[in-house]
Design a protein around this nucleic acid. Structure first.
Lengths: 130, 130
DNA sequence: CGGGATCCTCCAAGATACTG
DNA sequence: CAGTATCTTGGAGGATCCCG
């Protein structure tokens, strides 16, 4: 086997695996942080205003939510609609792309929900030993 | 409606949604960082030694991989087996729990792989406007 | 080879305050 | 109400060195 410009460590599946890893690395850098996920989670309930999101998410600072939403807008996962009323009103909504993220995210959330007890038990065991 | 110890913000679905969010928040704090995901991805190929993982993942520092693996071990997702040989040899392997994480992670990776072009296009559009 | 300890840097993110 | 700017700091993470 001879692949140019790519290191084959231990088999044919390696390049697939690294490609996978790179895809993950990419997405994690973009939408992998806590607030981003929380924001998508909140918006999965429907369009929402800024302060509504703040309350829904909880614990997020004004500034971080703004930055997070800018990021999501930039990546094309969220649309921002400002109404020139007084007081101003801004609604955020998931795009189709954003909505398509809900499914795999929900799968992960379900996993988290189901296996959290197991992880907590494991951690308790680990900490008890040390 | 009267729920003790749980804040109901604006409706019946809120607690479900927030429960989901909390589950996500929890898992993201534990296994949401880049290196953790990469490590699980690497180990999904099979048991592996420390330096092997370093090479496979790429760009991870000695220290961070150690910390990451300790974390995974603590959460019960990875087992660590040290052989008292000279030179020492340490093998890491996913537990059943760890392996169960592969499925939802793969779903996310697939999403990333499929939608990365769309996200890059959206970003280019966004950046062009500003 | 793998793990730990130490030091150091730098940036993510909170707090605060001001504008439209 | 929503957004931006500035300041400040805690801690994540890299580099390095030494141990078993």
């Amino acid at each position: 086997m001879h692949l140019v410009g790519q290191q084959v460590v231990d088999g044919a599946t390696t390049d697939d695996a690294t490609a996978h890893c790179r895809a993950m690395g990419y997405i994690l850098d973009r939408v992998g942080d806590k607030w981003t996920i929380m924001a998508v989670g909140a918006l999965s309930l429907g369009p929402m205003r800024f302060n509504e999101m703040m309350r829904k998410i909880g614990g997020v600072s004004h500034r971080m939510l703004t930055l997070t939403l800018r990021g999501l807008e930039r990546e094309g996962l969220v649309t921002r609609t400002a109404y020139a009323t007084i007081p101003p009103k801004v609604e955020y909504e998931l795009t189709d792309l954003g909505r398509s993220l809900i499914t795999p995210l929900t799968a992960l959330a379900d996993w988290a929900h189901q296996n959290r007890p197991a992880m907590e038990a494991a951690r308790a065991r680990y900490d008890a030993k040390v």
